[in-house]
Computed example of a mutant assay.
Amino acid sequence: MPRTTHPHKDGPGTSTPSPPGYFAEQALLGALLSEPHRLPDMTGISPDAFTTPAHAAVFAAIQALPAPAPVEPPDHAAALAALRARPAAPGPGEHAEHIAWLGKVLTAARRQARGLTAAHLHTLISACPTPRHAPAYTRIIQAEHARRRLHKAAQRLTHTARDTSLPHPVPSTLAEADALAGVVDDVAAVFPPHSGSLPRTPLPPQEPPPDGEEAAQEERLLLATATARPAEIEQMHWLTEEDFTLPLHAGLWQCLTTLVRQRAPVDPVTVLWQAQQRGVLNGVDDPREVLGFLTRPDVSAPYLGERILRRSVLATAHHAGRRIETFSDDPANSPYQLVVGSRRALAELTAIRTRWQQATSPATGPPPRTTPAARRTGPAPTTAASAGRLTR
C-alpha cells in the first residue's frame, strides 16, 4: 500500500500508511472542489467523519460557503493556477466565480487547519478520478466512520469495566454499554443489517479476571455457605454456573442447585458424590481438598453471590467490548457485519444485566389481590321506578 503524508495529523514530513478510506476522503473533497454543485447530494456526512483535521476543515468550508454556478466544462488546472498566483482580479472569463470560491474555501479552512495551501486543494482535486462518483466516495467514508465510532465506544466499555477506581463500577459500565448500543443503532440506521452478515473475525479469548485469587476465594466461601444453608440457594436464581471463574466451582454450584431442586439432602458428602457423578472432579487430584473447603461456611450466601455476579457482569462487559473492538479492527468486515456482530456481543451482556437487576432490586411480593365488589342480590332498580320516586 502506498505511503501518503497526512497533513496536520502526524506533523510535517511524517508519512504513515494510508487506508483506502483516506483516498475516498481525498476523492470526495476533490469532487466537491471541482464540482461544488454536487454537495446537496452528499447527505448523512459531516466534518467529523473525516480522519484528518485538514480534510474536516476543507469539508466544513465547502459546506459553509454557497456554491458557485456550475461551469461547463470546468478548467480545474487554470482555476488552481490562478489561485496560486493570487491575482488582483478574480480570474478570466467564466471561471472567475469558481476561482473566487476556491479562494474563500482555502481561507475558511485555514481557520481550522493552519498551513493549508492552494497546493493541498490541487492535490485533492487531482486525487478524484471521477467527480460523478462522489456518492460512492461518501458511502465509503460513512462506513469507515462507523467503524471508528464502534471501536472508540467499545474501547470506552472495556476500559470502564476494568477501572478499579470507580465507586460504582457496574452502573458506570452498563451506562457505557448503553452508549455503545446507541452507536450500533446509529450505524444500523445507515447500514441496515441483513441475514448472513456475521463477522468472520476470530473471537478474542476470554481474559482471566484481574483479581483471580480473590474471586476464587469468594467462590469457595459461597459454595461452603450454600452447602451449610441450602435454603438460601432458592433465593439466588439469578446466579448461574457461568458466573464462576473456575470450572470446578461452576460444576459444584451446578451440583448444589441440582440437589436443592430435587429436594435431596445437601451436605459436603452429598455434594462431593454429585460432583463425581457429573464428572466435576475429573481434574481434582484429591477430593479431600474439595471436601475441606465445602465444610467452612463464612458469610451469607446472597451477599457472596452478589459479589460473584458483579464480577461476572464486569467480565462479560469487558469481553463484549473486546469482541466489538476485534470486529472493528478487521477491515474485511462490512458495516452490516459490524452491526450483527456487535448486537450479538451485547446480547450476552443484556442477559446477565437482567440477572443483576434481579439480584440488586428490592424483593417485591406478589401484587395484592383485589377483592371484587359485592354483587347485589336483589333485583336491579328500573329506570321507571327511579323516575317515579323522583316525581313524588
Rank of each mutant, 00 (worst) to 15 (best):
P7V: 02
D10F: 01
S18G: 11
G21T: 12
F23D: 07
A24H: 12
L29E: 06
L29N: 08
R38C: 02
P40R: 04
M42V: 09
T43H: 06
T43W: 11
D48R: 15
A60M: 07
I62Y: 12
P70L: 06
H76N: 13
A78H: 01
A78M: 02
R84M: 05
A85M: 14
R86D: 14
P92D: 11
I99T: 08
W101H: 06
K104P: 03
Q112E: 10
L121V: 01
L121S: 11
H122Q: 15
S126C: 04
T130V: 05
A136Q: 11
A136I: 01
A136D: 02
T138D: 01
R139H: 14
A143G: 07
H145C: 14
R147H: 02
R149H: 04
A154Q: 09
T158I: 03
R162A: 00
S165T: 02
H168E: 02
A179N: 06
D186M: 08
D186I: 05
P192I: 04
P193M: 04
P193T: 11
P210Q: 10
E213G: 08
E214T: 14
E218M: 11
L221A: 15
T225K: 06
R229D: 13
R229V: 05
A231Q: 15
E232Q: 15
E234M: 07
E234C: 02
W238E: 12
E241V: 01
L246G: 03
L252H: 05
C255H: 14
L259W: 02
Q262A: 09
R263A: 13
R263I: 07
A264C: 00
P265L: 04
P268V: 07
V269K: 05
Q274I: 01
A275M: 04
Q277N: 00
G279K: 05
V284E: 09
D286A: 15
D286N: 03
R288A: 13
V290Q: 13
L294Y: 09
D298C: 15
P302M: 07
L304D: 10
G305S: 06
R310S: 12
S312W: 02
L314K: 00
D329V: 00
A332N: 07
S334I: 12
P335I: 09
Q337W: 07
Q337H: 00
V339A: 09
V339G: 14
V340Y: 13
L346S: 08
R353K: 04
R355K: 06
G365E: 06
T371D: 08
P372D: 15
A373W: 11
R375L: 15
R375Y: 13
P379K: 03
A385S: 13
S386R: 15
A387C: 02
L390W: 12
T391H: 07
